[in-house]
Design a protein around this nucleic acid. Sequence first.
DNA 1: CTGAAAGCGCTTACAG
DNA 2: CTGAAAGCGCTTACAG
Lengths: 343, 343
Amino acid sequence: MTIINDSGASLTATIRDVAAAAGVSVSTVSKALSDGYRVNPETRARVKEIAKSLHFTPNRQAQSLHSGRTGTVGLLTSDLDGRFSIPVMMGAEDAFGLGEVSVFLCDARGDSIREQHHVRALLSRRVDGLIIVGDSTNPRDPLSLALPIPVVYAYAPSSSPDDISVISDNVGAGRQAAEHLISSQRDRIGYIAGDPTFRAATDRVAGATASLVAQELEFVGGSALYGGWTEEWGRNAVRHLLSVDSLMDGVLCGNDAIARGVVDALREDGYDVPRAISVLGHDNWELIATQARPPLSTIDMNLEELGRNAARLLFRAIDGDRAIGTHEVKTRLIHRGSTSPKY
Amino acid sequence: MTIINDSGASLTATIRDVAAAAGVSVSTVSKALSDGYRVNPETRARVKEIAKSLHFTPNRQAQSLHSGRTGTVGLLTSDLDGRFSIPVMMGAEDAFGLGEVSVFLCDARGDSIREQHHVRALLSRRVDGLIIVGDSTNPRDPLSLALPIPVVYAYAPSSSPDDISVISDNVGAGRQAAEHLISSQRDRIGYIAGDPTFRAATDRVAGATASLVAQELEFVGGSALYGGWTEEWGRNAVRHLLSVDSLMDGVLCGNDAIARGVVDALREDGYDVPRAISVLGHDNWELIATQARPPLSTIDMNLEELGRNAARLLFRAIDGDRAIGTHEVKTRLIHRGSTSPKY
DNA sequence: CTGAAAGCGCTTACAG
DNA sequence: CTGAAAGCGCTTACAG
């Protein structure tokens, strides 16, 4: 948008305005502003001076016509209101923003038609690459269009091994969780898992199971209890587990909502958390975890780091180095009040 | 990024490739693809056919050199992880996405240096306009740079009356909350407010106070109790209020976290929510509100609508119609289990 | 060291 | 109806 003022000059100056004001040619202005070109130091100084006084900002759209790169990237999410995609996006935005690239945000709202539509729009803007961030850890179908630019799948991996994906190490997270309880001398551990249709739920259970087995332990009741991701499920399930083993001393939970339900039920039933029974969640949802009584120990997925990695992998791919395969980011134990040594 | 295949043809076709393949001039292709130009129907059909087979997508960057508009807009947020900015952004993205405009996302992280940096980057990309999404309802200083493009402030209004701002009607929200309790035959109402340095806290109290006064009522203890936005504050404050008036029959809370603390404390102390004491929150944070026992009635700020309005106002401004001033969006009562008629 | 020219991918009067 | 030309804002060999 160009606004013309009284004197007829454009409010957003072009390189020609600068050239005219400096009394040199357009090409000289271009070189003077670019560094790395041989230009008389005085000329350069004067041009820069004038460019600044005119608030000249080179038009990146025009520049990109030459470089072939636009310095833009598309971030395509399937659920903007998702608790998982936001931190991933923050990380990516952060990694890109430091360089010179700007990110286009598109929300497909879980609709593949909408997704295609957005991809086309992004292509017409000649983005240099694409990050597809998913809303669950379940693998997803790769984009159906053949794209002339690199794509990185974040959080939800592509189901194709030839694509570039970055995910959380949920199996490792499960292991990390179990090891934390085991190292706190807990040996009667129950597992209250989330919705079994979610890969995150089963992966976490798998990791935890492996750790128990390594210690020749097994879960209270023989195996993990699957349900939903809610507090209510946590409350109900923990009471059931206690009816199976009244001496249970540790509970692993599929996420923090479940864990919160568990600590609420235990407190109401007169159990001492964390001394008698330690409780560990997943996801580190601050809103829930910090306000619980006691505040929840939990496993953080390092989602911002995941987003940063996705950005880095995309950079590499844009530079021709496609690191195909699924890259995992390590999780991190957050120690709060719901876990402690037994004695 | 252009990938060259075996035959030497560019993978991302240009208008010249189409022209060559169709045996017509570049200008004819341009017109054929644009509709609204007089072109032989057969030529047009053939050109479209070929364009499609070549996967031709016009380069919007190049197009914008002529139109003066890029069809892009900047969304500058001060806290991407904020619970408030996300829905606002969703609304804006939604309103823009339906048209032909793409949105650049920038997260300033509450840092005004970073903000300036992002604004400059956006300017160099020649965005047609800017939406500044705040992280609280407190008015903020307008952008210091003089911009050649329109700006809309969302959620946090600009402190300048000459700017365009869209906010939630928090005074109205407070009124709506109080009227809901009053119409449920509650007449001994306490108010547990949030952090008094937040405009949202004081606005909501102001609205509720006005409604009570209109009924010749006053809050338990004479006035609202300010504290923090936490569950713990809610638990402590409600017990204090009960010590002041053991017959209190309604509690208005500054947000849902406070309300959740309140219902927890009441349940633990043996009060019947909602019959004996009704409790109402603000913000409609699903994660907290739906999981509370009972689920929380609350006031929703319609943030997506706020975002959509911001987008519409920006559209208008880009078209030359700057609706300056502060536009309010109405809030909405969400009725769940924590409020009910008294008898 | 500086500038005229060609060109990036497209559009739009203007001739024919 | 079609195409050659000029131009949008910039960059980059190429002469001078």
